[in-house]
Design a protein around this nucleic acid. Structure first.
Length: 437
RNA sequence: GGCCCUAUCGUCUAGCUGGUUAGGACACGGCCCUCUCAAGGCCGGUGCACGGGUUCGAGUCCCGUUAGGGCUACCA
């Protein structure tokens, strides 16, 4: 999976590169053989693309490569690591211990000049030496990381704060190799609701979770920016161009931030409503195609009538799909609440009867006003408030107690379908199948 | 345990070099609107972790305590 924290780190790097006119490089650190699968790499490509983070150098995700400092997979850079290992050995600052190769850590204070954290000094008098090559001959992460950043001409490393205390070791390695270290910026971590580091097992820890739930990438991207960074001036909803223009390192916070799903949900709603009709249609088509295979059997015209009504009531793709479910076929379930509150009432059968008659009499015109008139007439004759009748109709035609505004819904469904659905409910009711569990 | 980082409403944050009725957003509560649900409008409560300093004056600077997080692998 692509971890939400990793995605946020990638986003900050991307924003910084775009803000400064630099290059954003994607490198796949696939040295863990057990977890290194094509599938795992594809998840990264997909997630990056979904979030809109295009990279200037790295694997293109289709088997090709962009940039001339590759290969961009660590698993393919063994020769490079070997030669750097020789280079390091030649400095005389390494020694063998138990079959492994160790780098002698300097005993001088380790100073990290960080673009976010400022100057942080580590006392190394007690610092153990660093293993750079394992007994089995493979180089360790800290070493390959330094080599790759060096070889790839990396100027800025923006990474999670969990690396801050390792950075002085990296700097020591750069110095031993006679190279100037890049600039570092350590950004605060994303915490779960409980306040500890977001782990794989936390709900919403995977970027894919948001795609599946039908969130808008732009909304998540915007939300993620605000975790540990603020443009000030009380602005929160920022279009991507403005994000790029305003993003900078000095305004990054030093303290960790909890992930607040509620706020993301709200923000998604903001983006959801600001989508143009065409954008929304494209999103809805894609999402429904993927999550509701049955959609292809639905009358496209009906779908197009329903979608705008549903859109204004919900804020994610998943909600949209669920609201659409009752209309995907002629079969639909009745919720317990609908049964209990609306259908299982003394007057339900009688009212449904009147409604069928009233709607049936609407021969020529079938629009919001006509439907509303019919509902009100039935309510008046029954001596009830229109709301009561309206709720009953919604339950009867959708099996739900919540849904789009009723008159618009019935108009969208059409007279025939509405009547068929009323009839279905009447039959179910008569057969005693609408008793709440 | 050692080392490093952090500490403003429940949450995300604004608060640049000390003087604010400590601002915004989410969430929450109330009211309005209302056919449910949303959306929208109005109103509201809640906060500078604690203790010492420095100073005429501290959310802002210093120290300590406490709390949280991270690192401390022949993991990445």
């Amino acid at each position: 999976m692509l971890h939400i924290g990793g995605a946020r780190t990638a986003l900050f790097n991307w924003l910084y590169a775009r803000h400064t006119g630099g290059k954003f490089i994607l490198r796949i650190e696939d040295t863990d053989q057990a977890r290194n699968t094509q599938e795992a790499v594809d998840v990264i490509f997909r997630g990056m693309r979904w979030l809109g983070l295009d990279w200037d150098e790295g694997p293109d995700g289709k088997g090709g490569t962009a940039g001339d400092r590759g290969p961009y997979f660590q698993s393919q850079r063994a020769d490079i690591y070997r030669s750097y290992l020789e280079k390091l050995k030649a400095t005389g600052r390494t020694y063998e211990d138990g079959g492994a190769l160790k780098f002698k850590m300097p005993k001088t204070p380790g100073v990290v000049r960080d673009l976010v954290c400022g100057e942080v000094t580590f006392d190394r008098t007690m610092e153990p030496d660093l293993v750079v090559q394992r007994k089995d001959g493979s180089p360790v992460f800290h070493f390959v990381n330094v080599v790759d950043d060096l070889e790839m001409g990396i100027t800025h490393v923006i990474r999670g704060e969990d690396h801050l205390t390792n950075t002085h070791k990296h700097i020591a390695l750069y110095e031993a190799l006679g190279a100037a270290p890049p600039q570092f910026a350590h950004i605060p971590l994303i915490l779960n609701r409980g306040g500890s580091k977001m782990s794989k097992r936390d709900e919403g820890a995977a970027l894919g979770f948001y795609e599946e739930a039908g969130y808008l990438p732009a909304a998540l991207r915007n939300y993620l920016c605000l975790l540990g960074w603020s443009p000030g001036e009380n602005q929160e909803i920022l279009p991507i161009a403005e994000l790029i223009q305003r993003f900078d390192l000095p305004h990054i916070n030093r303290s960790n931030a909890r992930f607040d799903g509620d706020k993301l949900f709200w923000m998604n709603g903001e983006y959801w409503r600001s989508l143009s009709e065409a954008e929304f249609r494209k999103f809805a088509d894609d999402y429904l195609q993927r999550t509701r295979p049955k959609i292809s059997q639905m009358d496209p015209a009906l779908l197009q009538r329903l979608l705008p009504l549903i859109r204004e009531k919900v804020r994610t793709g998943r909600e949209m799909a669920e609201w659409l479910d009752p209309y995907l076929g002629s079969e639909y379930d009745y919720s317990d609440e609908a049964k209990k509150k609306q259908l299982n009432t003394p007057e339900a059968a009688k009212w449904l009867n009147s409604l069928s008659t009233a709607f049936g009499a609407l021969a020529g015109t079938w629009d919001d006003a006509a439907v509303e008139g019919a509902c009100k007439k039935v309510a008046e004759e029954a001596g009830a408030k229109p709301a009561k009748v309206i709720h009953l109709v919604r339950a009867a035609v959708s099996g739900r107690t919540v849904g789009p505004s009723l008159f618009g819904l019935l108009t969208a469904l059409g007279r025939e379908t509405t009547l068929a659905r009323l009839e279905r409910t009447q039959k179910e009711l008569a057969a005693g199948r609408l008793v709440a569990a």
